[in-house]
Design a protein around this nucleic acid. Sequence first.
RNA 1: GGCACCAUGGCCGAGUGGUUAGGCAAAGGUCUGCAAAACCUUUUACAGUAGUUCAAAUCUACUUGGUGCCUCCA
Length: 485
Amino acid sequence: MKKIIYNAKNQIFIYNSINRKKEKFIPIKNNYINMYVCGPTLYNYIHLGNCRTFIFFDIVYRYFKHLNFNVKYVRNITDININNNNINDKNLNFQYFNYITIIQKYFLNFNKILKILNILSPNIEPKTTCHIIEQIENIKKIVKLNLAYKYNGSIYFDIEKYNKKNGNYGKILNNINIKNEFIIKNKFLNEKKNFFDFVIWKKNKNNNIIKWNSPWGEGIPGWHMGCTTLSNKFLGNYFDIHGGGSDLKFPHHECEISQSNVINNNNNNLAKYWLHTNMLTINNKKMSKSLNNFILPYDIINGKLKITNYKKINPIIIRLYIIQTHYRKVINLSKKSIENAKKNYISLLNFFKKVKKVKTKKKSSIDVNILCNECYNSLNDDFNIPLLIYNLFKINNFIDKCINKELQITFKDLEKLKKIMKIFIIDILGLKIIKKKKKLFKKKKIYFLIKSLLKIRNKMKKKKMYYFSDKIRKLLKNYISIIDK
RNA sequence: GGCACCAUGGCCGAGUGGUUAGGCAAAGGUCUGCAAAACCUUUUACAGUAGUUCAAAUCUACUUGGUGCCUCCA
């Protein structure tokens, strides 16, 4: 028998990347949750793989809020780029105006995509460029402790010194041996002392206009410094959850941890629980900007892709498609699986329509509380959304059987199930109901045309002229679907 | 080379020790003028080998095949 959970809040288990184990989730401060997720770097449109992380943590955020935790959710915006080659835009020359235009373009796109995927805004969305002073202060601390060195005008974090001084770079999240022969064989140590030493202050090159003054000359802070500084500033030097894609584990998160431990003079490793979402692959290859095999959400929505047979896909279906797979498992994009999500979506939301057909009885055939608790149990077990969806289908199935009078349910229990389905499908999974194609009807002329055609069709049907009535239905197929009662 | 992960029917995809999602495709049914939609029924699969157990798709070990990270990445 599975345990019945009366207080879901105290029974959450999370897979912690630091220990590679599922651990009971106990917030640092009772009833408060501080959560940080690495946001986008604005050098291109966000692709479907990027969206996965944001959708997953959106559900984590929604679930915590549903459980009445006080959640502070911070997701940064990296609006600065160390390597300008990353910016993939033909019109770009590194003039100030163009640079800012491009950052703005991708920023707007990012917000738009997140909105149509029904992702809630975090509490704070700090931009890297707005916190340069704090970053310089943090770099000063590292330099002062003699754990950094200057090379070619840039400042590097000295891993060897750090590790000698009780540090553990490479081992916290990744188990990477920084003296591994394979790496030494394949990489060249032409710039830094140690191959893994990472830049914390990058010297201004080619008279780039994006730069700030610092004790080490003009330049920009290193990428990892942004996240350490922003999380520290808004959530303190030790907070509950730090999240991001699994490809950020190394080196990004490892660097963040080292910096934070030095700056704060502790061994807290920045966050208590580290969560990493797995990759989205296409043809079994990781989707990424550098491999140029990425898929943009807009192209799916607008039906521009072969993988969806050039059919337009509702963004909420994309959302469901992504959460159907557990966050720690790879998703391989395929035609069938998107179609699958579409069907699942329809049948999940159909619940709210067909539930009206149920005729309640004096007794229920099943203990409804178990069905409800199983939903909470699924999410409590390391945010097992696929298992949750499975349990939602169980409820859906039960209702089908009540309609067919195979099983029965009381009024009270039915209300309970309606409530739980609403909480999980709409509030937590964020699968809000699609508005029907009303836009077409707004155009009055089309509306009246369709209406009069329907009138004609009904008359023909009455006269049993089915050949013509079916023709009309076929003609109108692209605009409306006609279902005879 | 190191570390991490994955393998489920014709296909896509859940399944976290016993009851075996869901969808596509196929067949039959309720309904129906035919359809559509909805619902019901049918088809039992877990890479291989060994082990633990009364019981393994699920736990353990090894083998095979694949993926990710070790360079910017969600």
